[in-house]
Design a protein around this nucleic acid. Sequence first.
DNA 1: GGTCACAGTAAACATTTGTTTACACTGGCC
DNA 2: GGCCAGTGTAAACAAATGTTTACTGTGACC
Lengths: 214, 214
Amino acid sequence: MSPSTSSNPPLIRDAALRLFAEPGGARASVRDIATAAGVSPALIIRHFGSMEGLREAVDAHVATQIGALLEHIASDPAGAIDPHSSASFADAATRLFGDDSPLPRYLLRSLVDGGDRGAALVELVTRSSVEAWQSMIDAGAVSPGPDPRARAALVAMIDLAALALREPLGSLLGADPLTGEGAERWTAEVARMLARTSPHGASAGSEHEGNPHD
Amino acid sequence: MSPSTSSNPPLIRDAALRLFAEPGGARASVRDIATAAGVSPALIIRHFGSMEGLREAVDAHVATQIGALLEHIASDPAGAIDPHSSASFADAATRLFGDDSPLPRYLLRSLVDGGDRGAALVELVTRSSVEAWQSMIDAGAVSPGPDPRARAALVAMIDLAALALREPLGSLLGADPLTGEGAERWTAEVARMLARTSPHGASAGSEHEGNPHD
DNA sequence: GGTCACAGTAAACATTTGTTTACACTGGCC
DNA sequence: GGCCAGTGTAAACAAATGTTTACTGTGACC
């Protein structure tokens, strides 16, 4: 029997997060998770009370982690879509999500299986997007359009999709939309589309997309 | 014992589709589905061979159904985003998805749990979007932009999100994005954003969004 | 009427599941 | 050293799972 260690609860929680985020992960058993974490099934129950308790702990942790990214973006709202500071979002996303993070896939899991807690997590993301968008409207940087709510919804959807639909989007883009060059290209393209709504943007009209990084 | 009926296999398949699409539905048991379909668990195994066989049958059916919508849109590519024919997409979506269709939620399920079959279904949707977008580029109606692949990816994501993220999008929009007024508003807003990329669109420049439905 | 293919089901079966129980170990404190 | 709280585990437990088996009923055909 190994010595006692206080690192086991987070270890278990993280193993669960990884498994739950995978295809078929909703059917991961207490024994699957115990094996992945290198502990006994009974220890999971001891620390978290039940499988439901474990799921709650994972959800709470994910909310904290994703909240960190949103906090970062909220400190620089333009950073999310401004082509000149797109590196800021890309850097933050790379740092938080790396190449192998289960968080975006877990967000997707929350969308389909999360019930009330999943809906709350998704709302965390979309509310942050909508607030950032409103800040930019207030600053006069963008236009709310004839149907302001629809436009805000579109902006929020684009943000949510970049996280939750990371994999199909990555296939389409030919690069990971949350890290490195892929993140820069994605945010640049989103910025171009939204820059179209600037009240005083390009004055030449319809299509003026020379070189956004110069 | 009831009389024999050839309607039981589709009845079972549809009950399974509904259950699988719900939160927690990945854990739906053969007994849950049997109860929902009003048959015995053993009948499901008799007709589909196994639970895996049932899942395959559901996937095949969903691919057929979603293919029907894409076929409709492919016959009128502009219909997906042109504000003047947005009613065409809205009508088709309403007819296919109604108020209560499990298909969009099942697509979301496929994204997270579908493995290869899920990826194939998602590709069905995104390929169709990309092809429609390319048709519009070829027709000179829109511009590919400085990063054509990123722009096509953005268009495809918007389409995929409207289906798979129907519920959070509906909350943001304040209406269902796949039926009725909500579908019209959503497609109108998407059209406005994408019309911005027209090579010879509005010549007044930055923000010219008078009244798109007049 | 008898035979056959097919559909449908209850019961049984072997395995898996989440959880509980009983025990051992560790380290800190007196 | 003894006691205690906390950690960790193997085994046991009751329930649930997907599937198989054995049987019945139906309708078509001869």
